[in-house]
Amino acid sequence: MDAAVERLQDLQRSDGGWPYEPGQATSFSEPTCWTLMALHSLGLLTGATASSGCSFLKSLQLPDGGFCTGTINREANWSTALSVWCLSILNQEQAAAKSGERWLLEFTGYHWQKPKNSPLGHDTSIQGWPWLRECHSWVEPTSYAIHALRSRGITQHPRLSEARRMIADRCLPGGGWNYGNTMVLGNELRPFPSTTATALIALHGDKQRFEQTVARSLAYLDDTLPRLRTPWALGWTRLALRCLATESAVEAEPEGLDEQIAGCLVQQLKPGARLRVHELAISLLATCPFRRLPFIVAVEENAKKVDAV
C-alpha cells in the first residue's frame, strides 16, 4: 500500500491536480477528487497537497458555480458533484463549494413523461442528475450528487429524495444497476459491479424504504465479487459492502477480499501496467478504515462545518 500511496503522491502535477494517466500533460477534476479523498481518508494528506489540489479544483469552477472536467472543455457538468464533495470533505475552498452546491441543486437535465408505447422500462420523469446539461439522468452522476449534497449537510432536500427514488427505479428487475437503463424494447439489460456499488452506497441510510432493492442487488454483487480482479469494480464493490455493513444488510465481508484488493494494487503498480489514477485511488480508498470513508464522514461530521460557512 505504501508504494501505491507514493505513486499517487508522485503523480500530482505542478498545477496541483492529477491526470487520469501517468504521462498526460493535463490535470482533470475526477482523478484529483478521488486522489485527495483517498489520501485524506487514509490520513496521509498533507496540508500543502490538499491546498494545491483544491486550488486546482477551484480553477475549474466557472462563474455560474459549476465545475468543468478539465481545462479545455469549459462546460460545467458532472464534475461539479465530485468537486463539491471533495472540497467539503477536506474542508477547503468552502465558498467555492457553496456556490457549487447551489449550481448542483439547479442542475437538472432532460426528463419527460413516458408515453404508453415507450421502449424504455424506467420512469423517465423522475429526476436525478445527468452527466451533462440537456441530457437524461443516470446512476453514477446521480450517486455522486447525492454524496456531494450530503457532504454539505443537506439530507432532507426534495431533490435528494427524488434522486434516491430515481436510483431505486433504475434497479434491474434481477438486481443490480448498469449505467441507468433497465429494460429496453422488452429486454432486461445487464448489471455492472461498479454502478451497482455506487447506487447501493447512494441508497445507504434508507434501508427500510429500499430493502428489497438493496437485498437483490447485494445478491448480484456477492455472486460477482469472486470473479473481480480489476481496480474500479473491486474497489467500489468493497466500498459498498463496507457501507452496507453498518445497516446489517451485510454481516461480514467475504473471506479473501483483502487479498483480492492487495493483489489488484500490486497489479496496477507493475511496470507496463495500465495504471489509471482514479482507479488506483478507489483501490486505496477501499482499504480505508470504515469510519474514515467519505460517504460516512460526510453525513456525520460535515453538517457542522457547513453551518459555519
Binding site: 475526477e30 472536467t69 445527468p130 451533462l132 440537456e134 441530457c135 443516470w138
Partner: peptide
Amino acid sequence: PGIVYGWPKNRLHT
C-alpha cells in the same frame, strides 16, 4: 470521450 459526452455517450443520442 465519455468525460466530455457522458455515458452512454448521451449527448450524441440527444
